[in-house]
């Protein structure tokens, strides 16, 4: 009798994607729906205060704290829902005829896409808020190049969209990948200390000064180590699967 091969078509992959989306997308959208008005309210409250430049307005409104809280909520929502999915619908996923490593990569892609969505919404919101500042603030504080300068002078905006600083781009990409992979791998385990540790470090060190510094390097090393460890574990598991099927 011929052995059934693992499904290679798009069907099972899309089915898994739909399963993931069904279980977590509303939570993520809820976080975004709460994050955007919270930041708008905090920012707009500070605009008309005397002597407030754009930098001080952004910093005193603490929108970075709101963003990092939202990052944590989205990340842990992904970790938790995928853990629940694994324990309750693990059988359904196996019937999709996808190998363990394919499931992992699909989950990673989905998680990373959700985090990219969060970043994209935040960047778009910051651009809009800078525009609002330009219209509302006194003329002396509003320059025609304020948007471009904002993403250089304001640490939080610069870390969000690093412009020409390659080191921070690398850090951000590795951050998204490592978070995505951790949420995908964590589903197979019940301990959450590693995700908590990863989030605590990221939340503290995400906003850093312009130009490369020690903390950025530590983050890059940390994220790279996590990515390598996760990929290795997935490959080892795949090898074990192949050996047990042989």
């Amino acid at each position: 009798m011929k052995e059934e091969k693992k499904g290679k078509g798009m069907g099972p992959a899309l089915a898994l994607w739909a399963l993931l989306a069904r279980s977590s997308i509303y939570k993520i959208l809820a976080v975004l729906v709460l994050m955007v008005p919270a930041e708008v309210i905090l920012f707009c409250r500070n605009i008309k205060t005397e002597y407030h430049t754009l930098t001080t307005t952004v910093e005193s409104s603490h929108i970075s704290v709101v963003f990092l809280t939202a990052l944590g909520l989205v990340y842990f929502a992904l970790v938790w829902t995928e853990g629940q999915l694994d324990s309750r619908s693990g059988g359904t996923m196996l019937r999709l005829r996808l190998s363990g490593s394919r499931i992992f990569w699909i989950k990673t892609a989905y998680n990373t896409a959700c985090l990219v969505l969060l970043f994209a919404v935040q960047i778009w919101l910051c651009i809009w808020l800078v525009g609002v500042y330009g219209r509302e603030a006194e003329e002396v504080y509003a320059s025609p190049q304020r948007l471009f300068l904002a993403f250089y002078r304001i640490d939080f905006l610069h870390c969000l969209l690093p412009m020409a600083e390659a080191g921070k781009w690398v850090r951000n990409v590795l951050l998204l990948l490592s978070f995505g992979m951790e949420a995908a791998r964590r589903a197979e385990k019940t301990e959450y200390i590693q995700p908590i540790l990863l989030y605590v470090l990221t939340a503290n060190w995400f906003v850093s000064l312009l130009g490369g510094n020690v903390i950025d390097w530590i983050c890059i090393i940390l994220y790279t180590v996590l990515i390598v460890v996760n990929v290795r574990q997935v490959r080892e598991k795949e090898r074990e699967e192949v050996q047990s099927n042989a």
Binding site: Y192, I193, I196, L197, V200, L201, A203, N204, W205
Partner: peptide
């Protein structure tokens, strides 16, 4: 500020 991650982590651990 260097030790804030430690404090936050330990606080999170209480809930964990």
């Amino acid at each position: 500020g260097l030790y804030v991650p430690l404090v936050l982590f330990l606080t999170a651990m209480m809930i964990y």
